[in-house]
Design a protein around this nucleic acid. Structure first.
Lengths: 195, 195
DNA sequence: ACCTGAACACCGTTCAAGT
DNA sequence: ACCTGAACACCGTTCAAGT
């Protein structure tokens, strides 16, 4: 009897195959599940094999983040007025990251958020320039907006099951973080782009 | 010859002693240094002893955060107008957390930030109420302000030595995050508290 | 070139056993 | 009540050795 593999008759393992398996693992079971041993088991391979293909865990994570970043690329900016378009581009960053909580958390933990959201940040920069801001104005507005987006993301991704203080429950229960983010963004966008 | 201990002639180990040693360790060498074994070595004691006193690492971290939170308590709110006082209370949260990067990072990693900053958040709530906002208004303003403070903190604590993208360098180099935070806070405070 | 078993140096945690 | 040595089940990583 020919040895028919249980999973799929792998001939060779590919670097991109490793990375996409890692991304799948993160999407399915969260960032905590991304272990070299676990990934190796999923791929039906020894642990050192993973290292041969990706070098280290840090490099693997960076590759995973980049893979997800490409999926974020095709979000388009809506609106006609400069303000609306800037707000739309800013909301895109928040919305994309909030939709893929697992990958965003992973990026956040490893300090590679800008690797994940860089393309969408570039789109925001383009809208700020189109709004007529000069170099310094673009930078100021961009930074302020990223402060709000980052804060909104952290508060959104926070695990609500383990509120540190009892007061958290009161303050954040029944809070539409999406609407809150939009409102807060509008406040800082209005500050930076006039008409 | 009587057995004179090398460090200090410990008679008994105390729970508060364990916690303050842990806080010291975090302040001196960062959150990554806080391991049960390392702390046990510092206290010249076996690892299970730490567990006997604090239960688990999570409980230890919570106690450490609470200890630092008490040191944050005495910051006072400045200003005369309602807007200035709200802004001052908001800035206090950011400033306190930014001054103790190590503990703030630890709180952030473990999702216990509100345990660290709760007292200062309460002070902010008091100022919002004093500004004449009703219950819903206080909550809305508080949440928006916490979004900005959280975002500013994350971007401030971020390790600048490992910028994920090359563009980060360009956007954030020579950026006064303190001034940026104040400006962004002013934008959302002005939005919520009118005179 | 691609993959492995075995090991190294770490974790948090537990537990029977000592005083 | 307080503390210990030894173990368990995990990590990331390396390395000689196999094909």
């Amino acid at each position: 009897m020919v040895k028919t593999a249980t999973k799929l008759d792998r001939t060779k393992l590919d670097r991109t195959e490793v990375v996409s398996a890692a991304l799948d693992l993160v999407l399915r079971e969260g960032p905590g599940a991304l272990t070299m041993r676990r990934l190796a088991t999923d791929l039906d391979v020894g642990t050192p094999t993973i290292y041969w293909h990706v070098g280290s865990r840090d490099e693997l994570v960076a590759a995973v983040i980049r893979a997800q970043a490409e999926r974020f690329a095709e979000r388009s900016v809506e609106g006609t007025t400069a303000r609306d378009r800037v707000l739309s581009a800013a909301r895109n960053i928040y919305a994309a990251a909030a939709e893929e909580r697992a990958v965003t958390s992973l990026a956040h933990q490893t300090g590679t958020s800008s690797l994940l959201l860089g393309r969408l940040e570039d789109a925001l920069i383009a809208e700020l320039q189109a709004a007529g801001l000069n170099r310094a104005g673009v930078h100021d507005a961009l930074r302020s907006i990223l402060v709000v987006v980052t804060g909104a993301l952290v508060l959104t991704l926070r695990d609500p099951t383990k509120h540190a203080a009892d007061r958290d429950e009161l303050v954040w229960s029944g809070c539409d973080l999406d609407a809150l983010t939009t409102a807060t963004l509008r406040a800082v966008v209005d500050r930076h782009v006039h008409e």
